[in-house]
Design a protein around this nucleic acid. Structure first.
Lengths: 209, 209
DNA sequence: TTCCTTATCCGTGTTAATACCGATATAGAC
DNA sequence: GTCTATATCGGTATTAACACGGATAAGGAA
């Protein structure tokens, strides 16, 4: 059996180098590339055709979960494993929905990482019981929980979170204050909160701002 | 010259293992221990007497910066290097104040890490220009920047962030609505923000809620 | 003791946010 | 064609937030 080709995507160089150093010791694995963000990622994918991509979630400008959603349909022979410090159910749920084959916390050990890589490259999914539980805990909430905010709403949300008043935001966006109010009210409905304070808190916790 | 003895403290096992794998390739360095939090850290320190400790900042329950403050007076032959993903001036400032000899972002490369370790073990400080700039940018702000919130203020903050109105909070805490207002206003001053929306955002980002 | 800081508390106005009610136009899905 | 989601806009009334103005008690520092 030929080596499993791996591509590492993480914005922290030391983490990349560490992982590469770790995995290089294993004869069944081969690191074919690394990448610190979405820049050059698709070229690398096309060029190296890895079996497995280890992908961080939070990177500057981009979200690893979104990249997977985008990439997996175009590269059907490549499997994606999320490798992140975020142990939050919502991320696991989204990873599964977006087609990730595995989800590992950076607080895992070498053996588990290698096990995950081998299983995933063989076409099996790898979500250990801790991760599965996180996901289950969030599936119920997922139904009632927040719908997506529109682009315009995100724009307003961002300005609100910067402490701008409705009128300031209205002037900046060239709309009436009433429209800004409506956006804020609609966001509160979507996120199922009572007022702006709670809206900001929830948005912050969801990583929206 | 004997090897530089290194202790790695980070809550993410994969990161620890990666770093250890990286550094083990260098003949001048020797990993004498690793640790995922403050548990067992002092025993390890006493036992291994490392020349250099690589320390993460954000770990469960504890803050690496506080650990340094505590440990460096008791172990004068050990130097501490902060190794974190947080590229924020306030952390750098606190690291310096607490006696760290170096500050590296996880988004550094292997060469820089080894350079830093060697310099620090030789008694020199290592803060590259990027980190120094971050620190300088925050030295001025540091004075006025957020002071600690009192217990009562935290209590109010928490309720505000849950979407409670001033009156509800007042009733719950058995004080007048005006007092709750004052607490909120004082928090806004302390965190240097304009209104409640921004207060909640900043508090969320500071991990207060 | 005096000084200073901090946490706690309160009153009066003004301004902003929010709750109700409503509407039109557009685009995409079914 | 119908349904749904989105973005835009409006009135009126109530409530909350915010900007001023204060005070008192406790603790440490000079």
């Amino acid at each position: 059996m030929s080596k499993i080709k791996i591509l590492v995507v993480d914005d922290h160089q030391l983490f990349r180098e560490g992982i590469i150093s770790l995995l290089s010791k294993n004869e069944d694995l081969e690191i074919v590339g690394e990448c610190d963000s979405v820049n050059g990622f698709y070229d690398l994918l096309k060029e190296t055709e890895p079996h497995v991509v280890l992908m961080d979630i939070s990177m500057p400008e981009v979200n690893g979960l979104e990249i997977i959603k985008e990439a997996r349909s175009k590269f059907e022979n490549t499997k994606f494993i999320i490798l992140t410090m975020h142990a939050e159910g919502q991320y696991v749920v989204k990873a599964v929905k977006n087609g990730a084959f595995g989800y590992l916390i950076k607080n895992s050990d070498e053996d588990e990482l290698i096990t995950a890589i081998k299983q995933v490259s063989a076409g099996k999914k790898y979500f250990n019981s801790e991760i599965s539980q996180l996901m289950i805990g969030n599936m119920a909430l997922d139904e009632e929980s927040h719908k997506k905010l529109s682009d315009r709403e995100m724009e307003v949300l961002d300005l609100v979170s910067q402490g701008r008043t409705t009128k300031e935001i209205a002037d900046q966006l060239f709309v009436s204050a009433r429209t800004v109010e409506t956006h804020r009210v609609n966001m509160m409905k979507k996120l199922n909160v009572q007022n702006t304070a709670e809206l900001i808190k929830k948005a912050a916790h969801l990583g929206l701002i």
